[in-house]
């Protein structure tokens, strides 16, 4: 489905906790077309500072509303967090290739798939989990510490089992979420027709891809990269693959783990 450039009315923009925010805007067009893993590219102000749009993954849709989950990290997201309900945002979307949903036959102890979320990675994966209605995926969430564990309640509310890994052991498994993933796969031992979906920091995705390949499991990874245009024109956001450089904005942001050469 083709993207469009629209002026979308902000419905709500609220701090969830710490630097984490939820924003909802009105767009029947984007809400109707959006697929899990796709993103929108937002001009946060009318000024030339910051110059570029900010790509944010789609966290969910409800009738004509599009929901975003973002962390205030720099100038762009700080300005976005100051935007008020009723104001209009210049939004381009939906953009990129999202996740492919698994077929019916996939099972792992009742789980169709494993979703691995590192840091803000829960933002697109919650949208994916909502669309996995045939069987509930198993969710693995990784964070540095307990207060940085995101989206756990939302995943649980969908009926999914959630396992947590923290670097400091303040919640769940002590260690990397990828170590937890290895442990889960060892215990399951029948991962042949299972899919892994992951979003998080690049080193985590690389580790997930290796674990998936070693276990002969398909993995779909959602990548992040600085973008100038978001629509496949500038060739700025490329990632190395077996078939050369590919654009994160247009060929991705979701790539097969087998395809990437890191």
């Amino acid at each position: 489905m083709l993207p469009e450039q629209i002026k979308a009315k902000i419905i709500s923009n609220k701090r969830f906790k710490d630097n984490y925010w939820h924003l909802e805007f009105e767009s029947g067009l984007i809400a109707g077309r959006a697929l899990p893993g796709q993103f929108v590219n937002i001009k946060v102000s009318d000024d030339v500072e910051p110059l570029l749009r900010r790509p944010l993954s789609i966290h969910g849709t409800q009738s004509s509303k599009v929901r975003l989950f973002y962390e205030v990290l720099g100038m762009g997201t700080r300005i976005l967090s100051n935007r008020r309900p009723g104001e209009f945002l210049d939004v381009i979307g939906p953009l990129g290739n999202g996740f492919s949903l698994p077929g019916k036959g996939h099972r792992l102890g009742g789980q169709a798939a494993i979703l691995v979320a590192g840091g803000m990675g829960g933002a697109p994966l919650l949208f994916l989990a909502k669309k996995m209605i045939l069987s509930k995926p198993l969710i693995l969430i990784g964070a540095r510490t307990k207060s940085k564990v995101l989206c756990a309640q939302e995943f649980k509310a969908l009926g999914s089992a959630v396992k947590i890994a923290t670097d400091d052991g303040s919640a769940g498994f002590k260690g990397r979420v990828t170590e937890l993933l290895s442990q889960v796969l060892r215990e399951a031992k029948n991962g042949g027709d299972l899919s892994i979906y992951a979003c998080g920091p690049r080193p985590m995705l690389k580790a997930v891809s290796k674990i998936a390949c070693d276990n002969n499991i398909d993995s779909q990874l959602s990548l992040e990269e600085h973008m100038a245009c978001g629509i496949g024109a500038c060739l700025g956001c490329v990632v190395a693959t077996k078939s050369g450089y590919k654009m994160v904005c247009k060929d991705g942001p979701v790539f097969s783990g087998k395809e990437l050469t890191w």
Partner: peptide, 23 residues
């Protein structure tokens, strides 16, 4: 041409840098 090694763009004050390398 494959073009240059990523990262290829970054934002700067009221501008941006690019080094695509004629991909």
């Amino acid at each position: 041409r494959l073009g240059n090694l990523p990262p290829r763009t970054c934002e700067t004050p009221a501008g941006m840098l690019n080094s695509i390398g004629l991909e």
